[in-house]
Amino acid sequence: MKIGIPRALAYYAYYPFIKTFFEKLGLEVVVSDETTKEIMDKGVEDAITDACVPVKLFHGHVKNIKDRVDYVFVPRLVSVNNEATFCPKFLGLPDMLECSVTDFKNMLEVRIDLKKKRLRLFMLCMSVARKFKKGFFTAYNAYFKALYSFKNYAHQFLQGGIPPLGIVAQRKNSPIRLGVVGYPYMLYDPFLSLDLIKKLINMGVYVVTPEMVPEKDKLKQAKKLKKTLFWTFSNSVVRTAYHFFEKRCVDGIIHITAFGCGPDFIVDKLMELEAKSRNMPYLTITLDEQTGQEGLNTRLEAFVDMLKIKRTKKEAALA
């Protein structure tokens, strides 16, 4: 039995768990190919025009993999905690796919709603295992292995690595520290983000992403906003930025957002206003299926150069 996982959206946030779980259940896991122009185009073809880029890309990945496997795993991510849900497009994802990709018959839809129930994830895993006629102990084992693998993954981030991009560690003595905030499926898809993180690192920048900030530091920032945002990833992004503002542990912030993203207009404006009042350099980069390498490079270089100059000035003033 082969199970396919589209390399998009939730994949980038949770793949160690998903992958390990299915593997330990004894299924063959096939992840769709890394994003290419072709996959992107396929997605654009089928998804409705005003959808955001990542959602279109998900369509592309589904098409890339669906004929090669028995089932394609499509999560309906509703919530993973008590305070927020995911963006409405995550919530309606399976419904959209069903209508947009016409010959998609082998969807394995799993609704993930962990609100207010402990053990919910465990139960969920059990029921998925049952679907594939796997016994309790296999499932039990798979669940804990998956959990372990996810924890390990999260830990690597905290150590300064970026596992989805194959970055194990960054040079601690980089002259510039930069907060790069955005949703995991934007930041860690090298095609979509035009390899932005690696570019920055090559410019001698130490990159900090939301996943690299400990959960409890983010939670501390939660009270700063009058109202919690409704979306899990957005909360994480805004809180990370607020954490940076308060601790001043980075020289500047880059926000990566997708063209046509609904929640981000709020997220971006909130951070922009705060950055302005806190006097923190802030750059928004909006990516779509046509963003060119050239323009991006110049903008990044200019931004980093500006930070470097600022830094030398500050150091000169101190000396």
Partner: peptide
């Protein structure tokens, strides 16, 4: 009126307030 998520309508005011104060 605020309204609770998961849509943006409920967050209108938070952001609008900030923009206007700015």
């Amino acid at each position: 009126t605020g309204g609770v998520g998961p849509c943006r309508a409920g967050l209108y005011t938070t952001l609008q307030e900030k923009i206007l104060k700015d």
